[in-house]
Design a protein around this nucleic acid. Sequence first.
DNA 1: GGCCGATCTGTGAACGCTAACAATGACAGC
DNA 2: GCTGTCATTGTTAGCGTTCACAGATCGGCC
Lengths: 352, 352
Amino acid sequence: MSQTAESTGPRRAPTMADVAQVAGVSHQTVSRVLSHHPNVKETTRAEVLRAIEELGYRRNSSARALVTRRTLTLGVVACNPTLFGPASTLFGLEEAARDEGYMVSAVTLRRYTAKALEEAIDHLSDWGVEGIVVIVPHRAAVAALAELKLPFPVVTVEGGHTLPIPGVSVDQDLGARLVTGHLLGAGHRTVWHVAGPPDWLEAGARVAGWRATLEEAGAEVPAPLVGDWTPLSGYRAGQELAGRVAAGAARRRAAEVTAVFVANDQMALGVMRAFREAGLSVPGQVAIAGFDDIPEAEFFAPPLTTVRQDFAAVGQASIRLLISRLESGNAGDAERIVIEPRLIVRGSSTPS
Amino acid sequence: MSQTAESTGPRRAPTMADVAQVAGVSHQTVSRVLSHHPNVKETTRAEVLRAIEELGYRRNSSARALVTRRTLTLGVVACNPTLFGPASTLFGLEEAARDEGYMVSAVTLRRYTAKALEEAIDHLSDWGVEGIVVIVPHRAAVAALAELKLPFPVVTVEGGHTLPIPGVSVDQDLGARLVTGHLLGAGHRTVWHVAGPPDWLEAGARVAGWRATLEEAGAEVPAPLVGDWTPLSGYRAGQELAGRVAAGAARRRAAEVTAVFVANDQMALGVMRAFREAGLSVPGQVAIAGFDDIPEAEFFAPPLTTVRQDFAAVGQASIRLLISRLESGNAGDAERIVIEPRLIVRGSSTPS
DNA sequence: GGCCGATCTGTGAACGCTAACAATGACAGC
DNA sequence: GCTGTCATTGTTAGCGTTCACAGATCGGCC
């Protein structure tokens, strides 16, 4: 009460020692109360808590991290984070991490380059993350990641199955099979495909699922068109397909464009616009299906048949995986978690 | 070389002292090299850098934060973060913060409640953020924020102008005026409005701008319908409006539904679906405009007239504002930055 | 030679916390 | 009374940085 009581200083945040003094105990007892150590007398505990309340004390996380060597912080590197998928994953992940007592720091990449990825990881390392989740589903990114020898665990989202990195992904192949099968089942002779960018693993897996389904059904496999996930690229692909419809009627029937599986909903939107402008009716003349089930898809004209991915579940799973590796010292196999997608049938693929 | 050289221990991360020893200098010199202190001889600097390289040394951020009292971490609280607006803002913000040497940690709220907001802020405080950006544009949230006396600066995004909290916002009122004026200018007697949830400040400002424009033009002000930003709520509003079109033709002409300003693009999508189902043509019978300019808007059927908000700029501005308050010791006025929106005219409001 | 200033480098003490250990007191059993 | 055990509390020593200060070295000038 004599030496430390400075009435109106610039008021620094109170420390554990301050609390200890007010409560009349040692700082260590305060620490014990805060970390729920069992051996603290009930009355002292109450006294300490009162002092904490009185001073508005909060533990200094830096000091804590310094001595425990745990920052309780996880990093995320995300690309294209305004897309519905990555954004949803990110937020599912953050919530799961918070429930586990971790903080999440995210770094976003405008575009994937090896340099940008490395800088992002560097930035996160500088802040002492204990592990990171990488949501950069480029083939090259995962390869680059496999090269990097990092001093903490890394988990990928949609990182493919070929490299020995643990990760979470939706079964893209299955999704593509579901939707292609659905279209074939509706009586179409074959299904065209507007794919995503070839360097994206998801795009490749969807192409593979689509192709396999056609082949298994003995249907002709038309050359897939390629987009970049944007509505605009879908629009361009749609224009090309519309041209084929006109021409196709005159050609052999097998490759006629009567059904299109578009690799994501945004591109499907563009395709539908192109068809509309070309005077083609959906689903009357051409059936269309997308992938992702963005919230808007149900309200497109017509409502879009698509494949729903549970992005929040992906985020949660990636955190579970990361934390489990954290606890195991990052040892053991490169575990992979696969989440099943679900076909959502709407008007764009079924005759109204 | 004698006592510290343990050949194959479990290898702890090297410290500044390790580097110092390898380089044959004191740890303080290493520190000086790392913080670009001018008074270091060129040869020693090189030697130190070599040692750093050799050991793969990285500064321990916790120790640094402990002594400097700077965590260089900023917090973000975001609500509805999968919506295009908040997501874009968040990522613009993160990039700007990174450029300034800060780390960003985000906490997301599923839904706004005072408790959830406080918990989120608590969580961030626990990790020692130096300031936070709150992207929770509820009226109540901003009010709650104004009550809380926090030991670090807070900046709001779309937090309104009434409370003394610094913040960044897009001029929603202007946006609404632009779009309403555009519709009136196209010859419509009045413009209906599908508003956002009343507890959202943006929704209120858009209603105000719309109303003011109508009043200034001497047009009748119909009662606004209310949605919740989702396509589904827009769809419901659209059904109601479609009913009025049918009935309205028989009633007095003034309140006829020939133009609708919908408070965001997603709801506009729902409205358009409802109109389509009711057999109403857009823009033939009813003109429609939205707000936000989400990437899909250009590809709706028809392409949607809307108001573009530069969310990335909002994010950047919020970081600038936060950092300026950090540097000024959070003193001075509650500065506000206002960003101008831009009208984007497309097919949904103009006769093709 | 002696002194000065400028430049460079080292030393010790924090920062606020936890871990390890030591100390205290109470109580039981012999 | 002595000893042992248990619950409770205090003491000390770091964790890896930066800061403030003190020391060392150097060149130039009186």
